[in-house]
Structure formats: C-alpha cells, structure tokens
Amino acid sequence: MKTTILMLCLLIAFNSIAQSDNHTDSLNLKTVDDLAFMKGTWKGDGWIMMNRERKEFTQTETIDSRVDNTILVIDGIGIAKDSSAVEPKVVHNAFGVISYNETLKSITMLSFSSTGGKMENEMRLIGDMKLEWSFKDERGGTVRFREDFSENGLWIEKGDYSFDGNQWFPFFEMRLERQDDKW
C-alpha cells in the first residue's frame, strides 16, 4: 500500500513538473505566429538618455515574417530631432531576427546595431501582446526593454537600467504608430 501511494505521488509530481516545464518556455512555440501583432511599418517619436542628456528622435521600424513564417525580421532607424545638419543624423540603426531557438527552447532575438554590435537575447511574453528582453552590460548591470503592443495600432517600448536588479532607472522610451494594416 505504501509503495502504491509513493508511486502515485511520484507520478503526480513528475506530471506536474513536466506540465510546468511546458509553461516556462518563453513563448512555447516553434514559429513566430503568436508575434504576428508586431508585423507592419511603425513610425513615431522617442527619447534616450545619452551622457546625462535627453536626446529626442524620430523612429521608423519595419517588421515582417520570412522563411515560411519561422522568423520575423526587424529593420529600425532613428533620426535625431535636433539635427540641423544637411544630412539627417542617424542615432539608431539596427536589424534583428526573431526566431525559435531550439537549444534554449525559447524565442530569441539576434540583433545587430551600429552602436552595440551583435547580441542574442531571449524574449519573454509578460502579458497579452507585451514582451520583455534584457542583457547584462559591461558594467555588470542589466539593460531591460519592455514592448507593449496591447493598444491597437500602438507600440510603446521602454528601456530601463539596473545596477542591482531591484531598482530600475528609465533611459529610453519610444511611442510608434502602425502605418499599415499587415496584422
């Protein structure tokens, strides 16, 4: 009898662990179908803290799916608002690929930028049409970005920095509007 109860408890525990593992995957999918809300051309304004000074910019992001809808490609460019130069001053130039990473069993974004080089970060779904991704910087702190697409036709992204993972300081925000109806 004790053996039967023990086996039953182990079976229930194993089943609970197996089920919870399925829910710990970032988005628990092998295609980017659940991120279709990101697709489209987006334009708007934002600001970033650079050398303790707030810089404002105009941002354009284009997101589309490729390779039988297994990846999303993101192309973004930001132009300084205070640029009085003949040629627009590019303050942000980046390209990204969002895909399912089989090794990590999660969605990741491989990004390339003119200022930050190349990095791959895990993306997490933190709410309905809300994403988060982060990375450690060279000072040992954490840079975190949260993207909110939950309001129809609006993309709000905020960047925060933390030295200790507890107290967060905003350094970036952009508010973009959808320019097309791809989604």
Rank of each mutant, 00 (worst) to 15 (best):
V143G: 02
T3P: 14
V86M: 14
K55Y: 13
L131N: 00
M174I: 12
T3D: 15
I79C: 02
D33W: 05
G140P: 03
E120A: 07
G44R: 00
T115L: 10
E151T: 08
G44P: 04
I71G: 05
W47N: 03
T58S: 14
R66C: 04
D45K: 03
N152M: 14
D160R: 02
G44T: 01
G153N: 06
I71V: 12
A13S: 14
A94G: 15
G76E: 00
W133Y: 07
M123C: 11
S65D: 08
G96H: 00
V67Y: 13
L8H: 11
V86Q: 09
G96F: 00
L29N: 15
I77V: 14
G117F: 00
V97M: 02
I48H: 04
M123R: 04
E53M: 10
K2I: 13
G46E: 00
E147T: 08
E132G: 07
N51I: 07
V91K: 00
E61K: 05
K105A: 08
G153Q: 03
F169N: 13
L104I: 09
T60S: 07
I126E: 06
V97W: 00
E157W: 04
D45W: 03
E173I: 02
W168H: 04
E87I: 10
F95Y: 10
K136N: 12
F112Q: 06
I12C: 13
H23E: 14
Q167L: 10
M1V: 10
S65G: 03
K89R: 13
N51Q: 10
L29I: 14
H23Q: 14
F149P: 00
F135A: 09
V143F: 02
T58G: 09
G116E: 07
I126W: 00
L72C: 00
K130V: 05
N22C: 15
M109L: 13
E120N: 08
T142E: 01
M119T: 12
M119P: 11
R124A: 09
G127Q: 01
T70W: 06
G153R: 10
A18N: 09
K89L: 13
K158I: 06
R178C: 10
V32Q: 01
D34K: 15
M7G: 12
L10A: 11
W183Q: 11
E122R: 11
K2P: 14
I107M: 04
L6D: 12
S84N: 15
F135Q: 09
K81T: 09
E177M: 13
G44S: 01
V86H: 08
D148N: 01
R52G: 11
S134P: 02
N51E: 11
I71A: 03
V73H: 04
N51D: 08
S113M: 00
